[in-house]
Amino acid sequence: MAMEIHECVAFMLVNNEQVLLEQRSLLKTIDPGAIAIPAGHIEAGETQGQALLRELEEELTIAPLHYYYLCSLYHPTQELELHHYYVITTWHGNIRAQEADEVMWHALTDAPVAGMADILAIQEYIRLKDTLTIKP
């Protein structure tokens, strides 16, 4: 029997060769306490773009000004998640952790993320950043 796939949007905020990471709440069912790229589930009837805007507001209290799609990767946990990674280069508002225990900036080349999908997404960003970056 096929496992149900739960689609998510993951948002890589990038600034001066650093990426914003979260330390997930110890109360979360999935990956409690892990250091990760922030992400959230896409709700029924939502597009990826709609979910991205909603999740950025809910989790970090910001609205993206410039963003682009990077890649999609499977993230197997207690459920099979498919993360659609978006890079956000500029945003409006002040970043505040609403759901994570903490958010922090880390160098892209030394980001201590726990999940292989996040590692691969950061590597993909580094590989393609000069090709894909949308300049304001």
Rank of each mutant, 00 (worst) to 15 (best):
E59V: 03
M116H: 11
Y74N: 15
A114D: 14
Y85R: 00
T131V: 15
G93W: 03
Q98M: 13
Y69V: 06
L132N: 15
I119Q: 14
N16G: 05
W91R: 01
M3F: 09
E55P: 11
V113T: 01
N94L: 15
T77F: 14
I119W: 09
M3A: 14
L132V: 06
A34S: 06
A39S: 04
T47Y: 01
T131D: 14
A107M: 10
V113C: 01
A36T: 09
T61H: 14
P112A: 00
E99N: 11
D101N: 02
Q98W: 04
A63H: 14
C8Y: 12
Y85K: 00
T133W: 12
V14T: 03
A34K: 08
G93K: 04
E79I: 14
Y125E: 06
E79C: 15
K135Q: 13
L65H: 13
D130V: 00
P38W: 03
Y67M: 07
F11M: 00
P32G: 02
Y74G: 11
T29K: 10
L128K: 12
L108W: 07
L20M: 02
V103H: 04
Y86N: 10
L52E: 02
E99I: 14
I42N: 04
E17R: 01
T133L: 14
Y74K: 13
M12Q: 03
H83D: 13
N16C: 05
L70A: 01
E46P: 04
L52P: 02
G93A: 03
S72M: 02
M3W: 10
G115P: 05
A107K: 11
T131C: 11
V19G: 01
E59L: 09
V87K: 09
A97F: 08
S72N: 05
H6E: 11
L120W: 12
R96F: 06
Y69P: 09
Y125G: 02
I62D: 00
Q18S: 13
E43I: 05
D101I: 00
E22W: 01
Q48E: 10
E99D: 14
L26M: 10
E55C: 03
A121F: 02
I5C: 08
I88S: 03
V9Y: 01
E17P: 00
Q98T: 07
I95P: 07
V19Q: 10
A44P: 03
L128I: 13
M104D: 06
D110L: 08
M3G: 09
H106A: 08
L128E: 14
L21H: 01
Y69A: 10
K135A: 14
A44R: 07
A117F: 02
R24Y: 04
A2D: 07
I119A: 09
K28A: 10
P76E: 10
P76A: 11
A111C: 03
V113Y: 01
T89M: 07
L56T: 03
N16H: 07
L60P: 04
I37N: 02
T77H: 12
A36D: 08
M104K: 13
E58N: 13
L80R: 12
I42W: 08
K135P: 14
R127K: 15
N15I: 04
